[in-house]
Design a protein around this nucleic acid. Structure first.
Length: 468
RNA sequence: GGUCCCUUCGUCUAGUGGCCUAGGACGCCGCCCUUUCACGGCGGAAACACGGGUUCGAGUCCCGUAGGGAUCACCA
């Protein structure tokens, strides 16, 4: 068995969308699983629709997701000369022929056929005598498809699929301007790059039969195929740029961790028994094409959120800080100081417990920075608006101010003592203190919060709420 | 319309003829924990599209119907 070589071949007409990301993931995983290679090729043969921005977006998306490819990303357009060479070889061997029909003529014939309920195979010049054609007349090169028989492809996901050769059209290999089409280019590149397994979207299943004939005509080994189902939007409709499909950078901006998205994408259409949380190394060990489902899946943000929350909780605080530093600066209006960062890091474990996305952490962790006077949310404002709250808070300040040690073991007894002395329930004291000190943010255990904040900051915030 | 593919809880899925009175996860509902919030724990509602076969026995195999999807470019 030859070494496994897979590839991801996006066209640079936009960002790397979620479906493409999953296709790339599966290709990457399959190659890793077999100790093979994973190649990246940019399908830029359509010069008009390709852009460098799109290429950058795709490369960035791949890197962010952690899908590293072997060697350099290859430009398909750069191989145009080789593709042309193959087209001419097919012309030479009689597997292709010149077509002098104009695009208008073709369109006309196609429309007529459609109206008749028949199909048009583009074969106007297939058997025509070309001796009368004037020198220099532009022509395209079309493949001469077999008209008899059928081909069965054993797809690694879809199983045996059979198509009658009579269904195949004489597709164009070389446009009349001499540029190769995608259909030709993919075959040549996949062959030249030694790709053994083509794992791609379901939408290419029909193309496999057309491409099969190119391999046959050239006498090349036909690669293995695996056509994975497409991803649909929450409403069950196909995900497209117009319809809810987002680039992976959008998920990055929304605050998802790449490992969470990877895990989600892996489970969307693939399974290993009841496993849900799957590490990358585990995924590499377990991934096989046979476990890929055959029906399209819907994208579900709730599940992604849940998974992301799991990974957030298990991520080192320092890394979280690095990830949120930029947005945190925006939130507090200045770049966090070293002292603020220290407090933020201490608060991250507790805050992460209740977060689904990075912005949730930023929002709650922001109150550990020096942003007095603290803005209060509605609930906190209401808690602090009660009768005698100011007096009570002043009492708490007095109680706490006397503490020489500011720790878990000194603060809690002090507050309890204060509550008892004033015949107040603990909650009646804790809730206003929490509101005054956090402004309503979710920060975990109150005493922990006070410890992290420090004595001075705590007392200042409390004092802020006793002033008129 | 032609061709091809698909069809288990709302969603992602387990299931490869008996282990299925169909399991897990997300979401939802209830309870517990609790100084807030969340996490967590416990419990609950919730599905084999339909109709025929084959078989001692079908979610699992075959056929049909319905529904969904893909594709039919000098785009990729």
């Amino acid at each position: 068995m030859p070494k496994v070589v897979t590839r991801f071949a996006p066209s640079p007409t936009g960002f790397l969308h979620i479906g493409g990301a999953r296709t790339a993931l599966y290709n990457w995983l399959f190659a890793q699983h077999h100790g093979g290679k994973f190649l990246l090729r940019i399908e830029d043969t359509d010069r008009k629709r390709s852009s460098d921005e799109a290429i950058d977006a795709i490369l960035h998306g791949m890197k962010w997701l952690g899908l590293d490819w072997d060697g350099e990303a290859v430009s398909q357009f750069a191989q145009a000369e080789r593709h042309r060479e193959v087209a001419y070889a097919m012309l030479e061997s009689g597997h292709a022929y010149k077509c002098y029909a104009t695009p208008e003529e073709i369109a006309e014939r196609r429309d007529a056929a459609r109206a008749n309920g028949t199909s048009f195979r583009g074969d106007i010049w297939r058997d025509k005598d070309t001796t009368d054609v004037a020198e220099g007349t532009p022509f395209s090169v079309r493949i001469k498809m077999p008209r008899e028989g059928e081909v069965t492809i054993t797809d690694h996901v879809q199983g045996d699929v059979t198509v009658q050769n009579s269904e195949l059209d004489d597709m164009i290999l070389l446009r009349s301007d001499g540029t190769p089409t995608y259909m030709l280019s993919v075959c040549v590149d996949d062959h030249d790059m030694g790709v053994t397994h083509i794992i791609r979207g379901d939408d290419h299943l029909n193309n496999a039969f057309r491409q099969y004939q190119i391999y046959e005509a050239m006498g090349w080994d036909v690669p293995e195929f695996a056509h994975i189902p497409l991803i649909h939007g929450p409403d069950g409709k196909k995900l497209s740029k117009r319809h809810g499909a987002l680039g992976v950078e959008a998920y990055e901006e929304m605050g998802f961790l790449p490992e969470a998205l990877r895990n989600y994408l892996l489970r969307l259409g693939w399974s290993h028994g009841d496993e849900e949380i799957i590490s990358t190394s585990q995924a590499i060990e377990w991934f096989t094409l046979g476990n890929v489902g055959r029906s399209p899946a819907r994208f579900d943000f709730d599940k992604l959120d849940n998974l992301n929350g799991h990974y957030l909780r298990n991520t080192d605080s320092k890394r979280i800080l690095e990830l949120i530093e930029g947005t945190l600066s925006d939130a507090i209006g200045h770049a966090p100081t070293a002292e603020e960062k220290e407090k933020v890091i201490l608060s991250i474990p507790a805050v992460s417990e209740r977060a689904k996305r990075l912005p949730d952490i930023v929002d709650n962790v922001s109150c550990f920075c020096n942003i007095r006077p603290l803005a209060l949310d509605d609930k906190a404002a209401k808690t602090l608006s009660g009768d005698d709250i100011k007096t009570m808070l002043s009492g708490v300040i007095a109680q706490l101010a006397g503490l020489s040690d500011w720790t878990l073991d000194t603060i809690k007894p002090a507050i309890m003592e204060f509550a008892e002395a004033n015949e107040l329930k603990l909650g009646k004291v804790m809730q206003p203190v929490r509101a005054a000190v956090t402004g309503g943010k979710q920060t975990g255990d109150l005493i922990d919060t006070l410890v992290i904040l420090g004595k001075e900051e705590t007392l200042s915030r409390l004092a802020d709420q006793t002033a008129d």
